[in-house]
Simulated scan of single mutants.
Amino acid sequence: MSVRLTFGAHLLAMLAVLASALILPGVAPGRPVLAYLAATVVLVIGLLASLAAHELAHAVVARRHGATGEEITIGFLGGTAHGRHEFATPRGLWRTAVAGPAASFGLAALSAGIMVGLAVLGAGQLPVVVMATLVWVNALLTVINLLPGAGLDGGRIMHALAWARSGDRARGAVVAARVGQVTGALLIAGGVAALAFGYFDGVWAGLLGLAIIAASRVQAREVLAVTAMAGLRVRDALAHPASPAVAVPGWQTVQSFLTGGPAGPGGGRSMGFSGMPVYGTVAYPLRDFDGRPAGMVTLSQLALVPPDHRDSLRLTDVATRVPDLVTTTLDEPLGQLLGRLSIRPHSPAAVHTAGHALVLDDDGVPVGVLTPADFSRSSQPGRLQGGRRAP
């Protein structure tokens, strides 16, 4: 199982370096420059290792409960891989959810022990400050992740408990979403109260509460959508099933594609002056010379290319790369795929393809793209029959 650092993780590391450069000389003055550099390296490595250990603990326990292993990705706000696991029982869900905070708590305790040992040995203020910072980082990871909100480990624990009590996975998820909204409201109230008493740090609690409420509402709508799409597979939702030959050559220039070149939109048909393709398609699968997937490009990505660069840039230069895409097969259940789509974009380009899935055939050749509109259309019959509303 590999660990991949995304652009967000590199940005987080750069911010940690900047913070260390500004804070460490003031907290532990009079040290050589090399000492501050060494302390900064330890802090950055410790920060990223803490995030990776949290996610690795999730992944290890998830594998023991039958989940398939995936690449662990570390971003600005932590990891995302464990959120894609599907479990047959609530026991697997809560054990996997608990594993991450348990690992962070263990690292906080270990860092605290090292900090005390360094202080007793008289190692100096700088090493003690470094270990104290790692204690704070892992303690914060533990506390925040245990909050019962959507997308957090505490929310998954609540989901597992409600699932075990009701025997219904979907009902458990809805209960967890409602608890998450209550948690968010309490955090907002606490933040407002702190601000009223002159503590500006209360703004962070308020922002966290808003994020939890928003995520909880999204979770509730997702659960109802998954329920509405029960029994449907990807092939049932694909609006225009295509042959592998229809996938757009990734080596084509943006200008050639937009002007309806040999493999332009609409199978070689020209585009109107507005740049919209004939069939209203908004996302296109790309292939390489061997017919393998080369990424996905959307009209929003093409619109960002300056006109004077369209002749020099190829579609693969502006598209979302395959490692940053969610891929699926024609026979995957729609509900399972929708759960895998609930991940944070790993790169700036992936923001344009969030909510999209690249469809591959049994040979791994791209045959289409599922868009949010396809999911919405597929869920309508089930929602009309169920008649339930998201909380």
Rank of each mutant, 00 (worst) to 15 (best):
V137Q: 00
L195A: 12
L334P: 00
G172V: 04
T259I: 06
L24A: 13
T89Y: 04
G92I: 09
D201C: 00
P391K: 00
G167Y: 10
D308S: 15
A283S: 14
A132T: 13
V369L: 08
A123C: 11
I188R: 05
S270R: 13
V175E: 01
Y279C: 01
T316L: 12
A193E: 12
G124T: 11
M271K: 04
D201W: 09
A62S: 08
V128I: 13
F375V: 01
V143H: 13
V218W: 08
A38R: 12
M131A: 15
S270L: 12
P285R: 00
L56G: 00
E86D: 15
W94C: 01
R63C: 05
V192C: 09
F200Q: 14
R31K: 15
P366F: 06
G339K: 04
A9N: 14
T80C: 04
A185H: 02
W163E: 00
E55G: 05
A211Q: 11
L37N: 03
P148V: 06
Q125L: 12
M229I: 00
D290Q: 15
A35D: 11
G260E: 06
G75V: 02
R233M: 07
G92S: 09
A109M: 13
L210Y: 07
I74F: 13
E332V: 14
A228E: 02
A193Q: 11
